[in-house]
Design a binder for these strands. Structure first.
Lengths: 147, 147
DNA sequence: GGAAATTGTGGGAAATTATGGGAAATTTTT
DNA sequence: AAAAATTTCCCATAATTTCCCACAATTTCC
């Protein structure tokens, strides 16, 4: 199954629902059971994992040591933001208030396919991110994809 | 299977579709399933990879570490521009708005065969590129093809 | 404490917008 | 001139968005 790709600017209705683009939805396996787990992502956006993919990650977190202060801190922050949401008959999911606030999303959002997960951004914030240092695509490519 | 070769100036219709020249289409393996993956290329043009070729690249990206900021940045920027498009019965593919805008393509485009992928340029931008310093064909040959 | 009101949430229909497919005309090539 | 490739144009389908309705949960008032 190919990874999530592409970008799309979609609107968020007054109940916090966004339509997931068809082309991303169709990258989900049936084991995901038409369900995404949304959570706090890195770089102040929301990440959405298909349920089956999420389960793998959660298994990894389960193996952390609850008696280690740092492991515990990570587990707590990782889980407290996560939420299972199912994709409705119109291809939408609803985003919780805390996550919308965390990502600074209001009426419009930018959805990015990024391999194993979908990213949900405030479009302006994403622009700012791209303008940060070290984010030049060609340099990143040369560095990361060095052979 | 020989690599993509040649050049062609084709028009883009109002829905962003271009015909891929027959001579390039016939360089695709059947495993490509009549499908190209178009994405942001370097030097502000669009790259189009046959699906089978693309899959190899995506596999490499899949092996990057999502908890490393730079790997994540590259994966994000690499995947967000990518899109699977199938070649229709008239030999056309459709280019997404974001890619057309990125490459500055409007009504006319220049297609270049470049070995494993096809490049899709704004013709004027390509002229400018050729006039840049360090782009002299003979010097490049001497430097890159040294034995 | 219970009923009614209010608010929040979810589902879905219909309108709008975007996307895709193909026929026919045109251009290019042989 | 004939054949093939490309382009334009029109039509059909699909995706997204807006809007409305129904139900559930919570709150307020009696």
């Amino acid at each position: 199954m190919p990874g999530f790709k592409g970008q799309s600017t979609n609107s968020v209705d007054d109940k916090g629902r966004v339509a997931i683009p068809k082309r991303m939805r169709s990258c989900m396996r049936s084991e995901a059971n038409n369900t995404l787990v949304i959570t706090r992502g890195f770089e102040k956006c929301i990440f959405a994992y298909p349920l089956d993919e999420w389960t793998t990650i959660e298994d990894h977190v389960k193996s952390l040591n609850p008696y280690d202060r740092k492991h515990r801190a990570f587990t707590r922050q990782f889980m407290m933001w996560a939420e299972e949401v199912s994709i409705d008959s119109k291809g939408r999911i609803s985003l919780s208030r805390p996550l919308l606030e965390y990502a600074g999303i209001q009426h419009t959002t930018l959805l990015l396919g990024s391999q194993t997960y979908i990213e949900i951004w405030n479009p302006d914030r994403f622009d700012d991110y791209l303008n940060e240092e070290d984010m030049d695509y060609e340099s990143l490519a040369a560095e990361v994809m060095a052979q």
